[in-house]
Computed example of a mutant assay.
Amino acid sequence: MIVRQAANVLEILEYFARVKKPATLAEIADHFGWPRSSTFNLLTTLAEKGYLYEPRPRAGYYPTPRWLVLAREVAEVEPLPGWTHALIAALSTETGETVAIAAPAGVMAVFIDVVESAAAIRYFAKVGHRVPIHATSSGRALLLQYSKDERDSLYRKIEFKQYNHSTPISIEAVEAELRKSVERGYCQSFADYSRDLAGVAVPLPVGERRLSVVVAGPEYRIGDKTAAIAVTLQQFVERFRAV
């Protein structure tokens, strides 16, 4: 369930991140198709709370640095170790594919760091991208770090949708895939969630944090190289964790 008012605030911030310039009330309302009155109320509230300001008279609104200050303060409490970004950057260079670190977010896995492939045809993913925890290799590499009781509790909240023909649509199917992952030593997915997309992932626990690292790209490039990519993935994790 999405709370619309909260979503609207985040969509405004994402809008400014894309346009990178001030915007008037009319421009924002027209972009989202929102009523002028509710757009005015939302922008006024954000301005009064110190999150928006008017750089020039009648030039429109733009975010203040308060967003950045808060984000830094939040990130400093539990930052990722520096080696984790170096890891995914090196893996992306080595494999030529997009590499991400995922963390659990309820029934979803959320990407908390991403290095995109430089290839023209690639997996487009950004920090904050969310995927079903049961239907992706990155998510299943997180589930491997859950106890059986924790997984059973989570399964009761999952809507087992058929995203593609290979999507596991039952608890038994997910558990069977987890057992296969343990046997082969890594998690994999072939269009289980996103069409024509393949992924190879392994758990990446950091302290008490459950994380995973995934190499993802088009099936036609990754398909017959999953085992080799998994070896590279595991070798790089061992190397960078030891730094």
Rank of each mutant, 00 (worst) to 15 (best):
M1K: 01
R4N: 07
A6I: 13
A7M: 12
I12A: 06
K21F: 01
P22K: 07
T24R: 11
A26I: 06
I28Q: 05
I28N: 12
A29Y: 03
P35G: 08
S37C: 00
T39L: 01
T39I: 01
N41V: 03
L42R: 11
T44L: 05
L46W: 04
A47E: 15
G50S: 01
G50K: 07
L52P: 08
P57V: 03
R58F: 07
A59G: 10
Y61S: 09
Y62I: 08
P65N: 03
V69A: 07
R72L: 13
V74S: 03
V74K: 08
V77E: 12
P79C: 03
P81H: 06
G82H: 09
I88C: 06
L91Q: 14
S92I: 02
G96Q: 04
E97N: 12
A100P: 00
P104M: 04
V110M: 10
D113H: 11
E116Y: 00
E116R: 06
I121M: 11
Y123M: 15
F124V: 14
A135P: 02
T136G: 00
G139C: 02
A141V: 04
R151N: 12
D152L: 11
K157V: 01
K157Y: 08
Q162M: 02
S166R: 13
S170W: 02
K180D: 12
F190W: 09
R195G: 00
D196L: 07
A198S: 15
A198Q: 09
V200T: 10
V202H: 08
R209F: 03
V213S: 00
V214G: 00
V214P: 00
P218E: 14
E219T: 14
R221F: 09
G223F: 03
A227T: 13
Q235V: 01
F236Q: 14
R241S: 15
R241W: 12
A242E: 15
A242S: 15
V243Q: 14
